[in-house]
Write a protein that binds this DNA or RNA. Sequence first.
DNA 1: AACGTTGAAATAGTTC
DNA 2: GAACTATTTCAACGTT
Lengths: 92, 92, 92, 92
Amino acid sequence: MTDIGGISSNHLRQFIERIERLEEDKSVVSEDIREVYAEAKANGFDAKIMRQVIKLRKMDSAERSEGEVLLNLYLSALGMAEPVGSEEELNS
Amino acid sequence: MTDIGGISSNHLRQFIERIERLEEDKSVVSEDIREVYAEAKANGFDAKIMRQVIKLRKMDSAERSEGEVLLNLYLSALGMAEPVGSEEELNS
Amino acid sequence: MTDIGGISSNHLRQFIERIERLEEDKSVVSEDIREVYAEAKANGFDAKIMRQVIKLRKMDSAERSEGEVLLNLYLSALGMAEPVGSEEELNS
Amino acid sequence: MTDIGGISSNHLRQFIERIERLEEDKSVVSEDIREVYAEAKANGFDAKIMRQVIKLRKMDSAERSEGEVLLNLYLSALGMAEPVGSEEELNS
DNA sequence: AACGTTGAAATAGTTC
DNA sequence: GAACTATTTCAACGTT
């Protein structure tokens, strides 16, 4: 067999190569993104502002619900029942 | 036209949305990578060591030995013997 | 002199040891924090909720100003000067 | 008293504030550490290598050789000689 | 006590 | 080459 020190070389190699292929894919996508920014820049848009717009659009919904959880946390901390009556939000 | 202040909203929107789609692709690939690591772990492999292996394969020998030499230099300066020809400390 | 390979051993050693002392301080403070949580827990408080309260108190001012920056970014991107409206149009 | 729902607000507040003070201390120490690295860098030392040195000094030899052995095992399994003397076959 | 999850620190990469 | 940002890595924490 191809085992060395009790591990399967082939198995390990397959995992490693799958990851390397995926990493390659990821690099390609990253390159694509850079190209879109470059194209936008060539059309007069500011990449820095675009990045922040995208970041904030992504944060938006998450942040919003997190803010609502805050109130419930304070209420819980003070022993008051939260308005919706569930506790799962604490673990989100 | 939908221009405001000399900027085409539609044009900007298209760029933003193209990037957001690509970012989504990228997230998917990242998730795939995490899954492969998880699968490897479930098969008894150590993810941290695998990362080091992948990094070593990606690094060219030039920069690798460069860091190695410098580390040994520092260790020598501190009176610490270099750790018997191992390299994983370089990447940890 | 104590130079090895062109570097001053003493100088290097001093930097290393200063950092190691500071790292030790940091560990002590971390331990103190853990102890306060333990004490609070012994008094019936929920550490998890406390952590989130503290996190949110920390985020509070930062997040708020970031949200205001968002609007200005959009206005800038559209060539408009001053924040007048609300934030709802962000996801339209 | 200021108890609400059977919980002492003052007591909770005190715990929270003690923790926040300790977190602040911790941030100060972290900042100090960063400054020492910056100072070392200004004196020609390589911060990245210094971090490796500090990590090596902190690690006990047991866990060090453990990781070392495992890495070499994996490299062997992949047909990569551990890079003591020869480095060329790594990228093949 | 292993596991995943999360938050902080470090590194890499990009822009100016 | 310095600053800023993004990504990656690492360690702490709660959970099971």
